[in-house]
């Protein structure tokens, strides 16, 4: 028996919004410790990893490890049937071929129950080694989304250059060039407005805008985003999922032949 109840059901809807443009289907691995998802996008350029800790749920039970392969478009359609303040419960029997989504209104006066067929998907996990990143940039997630959106108008790629002076996002194309520089903030009223750079050595990497823009669909999950960079390894873009976990996007950099 698997059962996971989330009073802040809206977080699950936001997680789906953050992955459904990148992935059409994926497996949710349910274990005693929580729920995890790891999947590559169809082009195998980026990798998404979602981690939802068991203790973050209001009720969590997983008697046996369970892999639930889901069509994420269908899951998203079902979650759209819930209200933003609904309590969401996911439930499945051991060896079941369906999963149930139960939506309860906060007053308990309305309870909806949706069942979805599960899929058998090929599991294709990549091992992500522990990496000491040369630069870790923490910045407001809305600012990052804005920069990616604005610079996409100039070219297909964004160059991210991190140095002790700050971080510079650049793009170039037919209409001209664009540069946005952010310095580390000295003092802010709200922690979520801070730009904090932890740099061991300067790093400059180039990434496809298209993917960065898809990652920014996670912006409603968290006021801050962290960008971890290291020479010639994938960028990690990470957003917290409330108090219950995090979503990480790994994006291969563009490198010379």
């Amino acid at each position: 028996m698997f059962e996971a109840r989330l009073v802040h059901g809206n977080l699950l809807k936001k997680v789906l919004d953050a992955i459904k443009d990148l992935l059409t289907e994926a497996s949710w691995d349910c274990a005693d410790s929580g729920i995890q998802l790891q999947a590559m996008d169809n082009s195998h350029v980026s990798l998404v990893s979602v981690n939802l800790r068991a203790e973050g749920f209001d009720k969590y039970r997983c008697d046996r490890n369970l892999i639930m392969g889901m069509d994420l478009t269908s899951m998203s359609k079902i979650l759209k049937c819930s209200a933003s303040d609904d309590i969401i419960t996911m439930k499945a029997q051991d060896n079941a071929d369906t999963v149930s989504f139960i939506f309860e209104s906060p007053s308990q006066e309305k309870v909806s129950d949706y069942q979805m067929k599960l899929m058998n998907l090929d599991q294709d996990h990549l091992g992500i080694p522990e990496t000491e990143y040369a630069c870790v940039i923490k910045m407001p997630s809305g600012e990052f989304a804005r920069i990616c959106r604005d610079l996409s108008n100039f070219g297909e790629n964004i160059v991210i250059a991190c140095s002790k002076e700050g971080v510079k996002f650049s793009a170039a194309g037919d209409i001209g060039t664009a540069n946005v520089k952010l310095a580390q903030t000295s003092s802010v009223d709200k922690e979520e407005d801070a730009v904090v750079i932890d740099m061991q050595e300067p790093v400059t990497l180039t990434f496809a805008c298209r993917y960065l823009n898809m990652f920014t669909k996670a912006t409603p999950l968290s006021p801050q985003v962290s960008l971890s960079m290291h020479p010639d390894v994938p960028l990690v873009v990470e957003y917290a999922i409330g108090e219950i976990g995090q979503i990480q996007y790994f994006l291969a950099p563009k490198i010379g032949d």
Binding site: L126, P234, A252
Partner: peptide, 14 residues
Amino acid sequence: EGRQHPIEMFYARE
């Protein structure tokens, strides 16, 4: 501009 390689080039399959 650089070339886009797949993410598997950086991480091994488990």
